[in-house]
Simulated assay, not measured.
Amino acid sequence: MAVQDVAGARAAAAGGADRLELCAALAGTGGLTPSTGMVAGVADALRGTGVGVHVLVRPRAGGFVFGTDEVDVQVRDVRAVLDAGADGVVVGALTADGRVDAEALAALVAAAGGADVTFHRAIDQVLDPVAALDALAGAGVRRVLTSGGAARAGDALDVLAALAARGGELGVEVMAGGGVRVDDVPALAATGVHAVHLSARRTVAADGGPGGGGAHGYDVTDPDLVAATRAALDSGADA
């Protein structure tokens, strides 16, 4: 479950989420690195719940081809968010020709120092994501978040099934995510993926004025959507 603040983390945990991805600016950018203060606050809120917090480390919006300075910033951020209490990190880097950036990934995994590393939806821009799982497993990646290369994970069930099968052989968990709605959950779970990932958010109206981002409001985690997703997963498991 993707969340952006302490209240969202509490709501997701109470609604039955097993693992949280903490990020910032999700709606406008697809997610960026949150502040270390936010990481510490969420980690404190989840302590004792058994729900892990995995922090997105991404320095900017746009593509996933990063320069040396950008990789260095991400290495620093990986260390900082883990020091702040995160259980793992969510990262991704590609080469200009659309392959996993092995050098950048190695630096990020090393910075994680044995903590869980998830490779995010950068994999959806790789030409052969199933083959890419081998490189990710070899680099020490624990899990992968993917839509199967489609705009919505529900539109790539065959690819997700292939990814889940190969991930099972390699010991890499595959999480289905990307445009997921509650009614997608049973079909996604049936592909054999190890987890289903969504944001379960709604927008609260709030006018920040000309200096605060205008009247677009901000996103919050909807506890009813969290609960509905948990129920859909549990229903599928019982079928």
Rank of each mutant, 00 (worst) to 15 (best):
V3S: 04
V3Q: 02
Q4Y: 05
A7N: 07
G8M: 08
A9K: 12
A11T: 09
A12V: 13
A14R: 15
G16R: 13
D18F: 09
D18G: 14
R19Y: 04
E21A: 12
L26W: 02
T29K: 10
L32C: 04
T33H: 03
P34Y: 01
A43E: 03
A43K: 01
D44E: 14
D44G: 10
A45T: 08
L46N: 01
R47T: 11
G48D: 00
T49W: 02
G50R: 06
G52C: 05
G52Q: 10
V53Q: 01
V55Q: 02
V55L: 05
V57K: 04
P59T: 11
P59M: 09
P59C: 11
R60A: 13
G63N: 10
F64Q: 04
F64H: 06
F66R: 03
F66Y: 15
G67P: 00
D72G: 15
V75G: 04
R76L: 05
R76Q: 10
V91N: 00
G92C: 07
L94Y: 00
L94G: 01
D97Q: 11
R99Q: 15
A102F: 03
E103P: 05
L105P: 06
A106W: 03
A110C: 12
A111M: 07
G113A: 14
D116M: 15
T118F: 13
T118E: 04
F119V: 08
H120G: 09
H120R: 10
H120M: 09
H120A: 09
R121L: 11
L127E: 13
L127G: 04
D128V: 14
D128A: 15
A131F: 02
A132N: 07
L133N: 01
D134A: 15
A135F: 00
G138D: 11
V144C: 08
V144I: 12
L145C: 11
G148N: 06
D158H: 12
L160A: 10
A161K: 08
A162W: 01
L163P: 00
L163I: 06
L163Q: 05
L163Y: 03
R166Y: 00
E169S: 09
L170G: 05
V172K: 08
E173A: 15
M175T: 02
M175R: 06
M175K: 02
G177N: 04
G177Y: 02
V182F: 04
D184G: 06
P186L: 13
A187T: 10
V193N: 03
V193P: 01
A195G: 02
H197S: 05
R201Q: 12
R202L: 11
V204K: 05
A205W: 10
A205E: 14
D207V: 12
G209Q: 07
G209S: 07
P210K: 05
G212M: 10
G212C: 03
A215M: 04
A215I: 05
A215V: 08
A215Y: 01
H216I: 08
Y218T: 13
Y218V: 13
D219A: 14
D222G: 09
D222F: 06
P223E: 10
D224N: 14
A228L: 13
T229A: 15
R230M: 11
L233G: 01
D234Y: 07
G236D: 03
